[in-house]
Write a protein that binds this DNA or RNA. Structure first.
Length: 128
DNA sequence: AGCGTGACGAGTA
DNA sequence: ATACTCGCCACGC
């Protein structure tokens, strides 16, 4: 096959296809079981490529078609701008939440990562 | 090329 | 628990 040599800054792109990295991130996102979550960093580590910021970027740009609420920040804070949307999902999926202490009323609950975090493998998780 | 910005994360005060 | 720093890396100006 004749190898066409493109200049490094003029590689052909196909509009229908997402960048390969983005596709992998979305792929992993769809593997997260309902009621569980993975952090941006977890996904990056799982892929063995990129970092949390790269994953965050992908979700920001292309996350609309996948269960984006199952990809969360490491501190358990709900996604800014879509807290209520996400909270709704968590409640219907039974995702472990950590209710805000009564002292902080205005605060929405945060995720209980200790219980909700999914390691990417199939494994029994119990307790209550 | 430099610099600010971001759906991040860990460490420190 | 909050605030701030740094490290990280892709992008846009």
């Amino acid at each position: 096959m004749s190898e066409q040599s493109f200049p490094d800054d003029a590689r052909p792109e196909y509009a229908d296809a997402l960048p390969e990295y983005a596709e992998r991130v979305l792929d992993v996102t769809e593997l997260i079981p309902p009621g569980r979550v993975m952090t941006y960093g977890d996904i990056a580590e799982y892929l063995g490529e990129g970092g949390p910021r790269q994953v965050g970027r992908v979700m920001s740009l292309y996350g609309g078609g996948v269960p984006w609420w199952r990809v969360v920040r490491a501190d358990g804070a709900l996604l800014a701008g879509q807290e209520l949307e996400a909270l709704d999902r968590y409640r219907e999926e039974g995702t472990p939440l950590k209710e805000a202490s009564r002292a902080a009323e205005g605060h929405l609950p945060r995720l209980d990562l200790k219980r909700a975090r999914w390691d990417g493998g199939e494994r029994a998780q119990d307790h209550t």
